[in-house]
């Protein structure tokens, strides 16, 4: 992180991304050899997690990206050494990030920057500012949702390699609006 801070200070064009799971999971979880925790790069220590949270809060890290990596049970439930790297992360990325960052100074404006505006600027040169005339891509978040638990039944992905099953959250994604169409309400995909 110090290298990235140094480079940014020097005006070098460099951006850094972090995954939600590296903000919340640590290598202590490997004790049971459950390959759901096998990811690339590997989970690191709780000190490393603190460093990443700090860097996301202070803007050194520009982007949160999920590295959503679905794997079938056959490649993800056996021996650690034989299992594929990766976990599924799209569905609860935002609740996970908010849980990880709850004790940090991480505003909704920062969420918008790191999870929407910065990736949109880098990937497709869009501002994503919620301006008049923009494509109506809007996500409505309930920041004080009643505590809820993520379970396999809530999963839309075809795979089940999530380390977050059984985890409780206090943030939920109430609505997703894509190009003016509601695509999701409270976990239900809208297929109209």
């Amino acid at each position: 992180m110090d290298v990235i801070r140094w480079a940014k200070k020097r005006g070098i064009q460099v951006t850094a991304e972090v995954t939600p799971h590296h903000l919340i999971l640590t290598d202590d979880l490997l004790v049971g050899y459950d390959p759901v925790y096998k990811v690339n790069p590997p989970l690191r220590t709780s000190e490393d997690v603190q460093v990443l949270r700090e860097a996301l809060a202070d803007g050194t890290i520009d982007i949160v990206a999920t590295d959503h990596a679905p794997h079938s049970a056959e490649t993800k439930s056996g021996l650690w050494s034989d299992s594929a790297n990766g976990l599924i992360g799209l569905e609860v990325a935002l609740p996970v990030v908010m849980k990880a960052m709850q004790d940090r100074d991480y505003s909704w404006r920062s969420v918008a920057k790191t999870m929407s505006q910065n990736p949109a600027r880098i990937g497709s040169h869009q501002a994503n500012n919620l301006d008049i005339g923009d494509s109506a891509n809007i996500t409505l978040i309930d920041p004080k949702a009643a505590t809820w638990t993520y379970t396999p039944e809530l999963t839309q992905s075809k795979s089940r390699n999530s380390p977050y099953y059984g985890m409780d959250f206090n943030t939920s994604v109430a609505y997703t609006i894509f190009r003016g169409k509601i695509t999701q309400i409270a976990g239900e995909v809208q297929n109209a």
């Binding site: 050899y33 056959e74 490649t75 056996g78 021996l79 650690w80 050494s81 034989d82 299992s83």
Partner: peptide, 30 residues
């Protein structure tokens, strides 16, 4: 797919009435 074959082998052995399985494997955590 060593993981699955480990599972299948173990279940086969248990079906044959194994009370204890002594396992040696090249993979940590087996």
């Amino acid at each position: 797919s060593k993981g699955e074959s480990l599972k299948d082998t173990a279940q086969t052995l248990e079906a044959m009435g194994a009370d204890a399985v002594i396992v040696r494997h090249s993979s940590s955590g087996a």
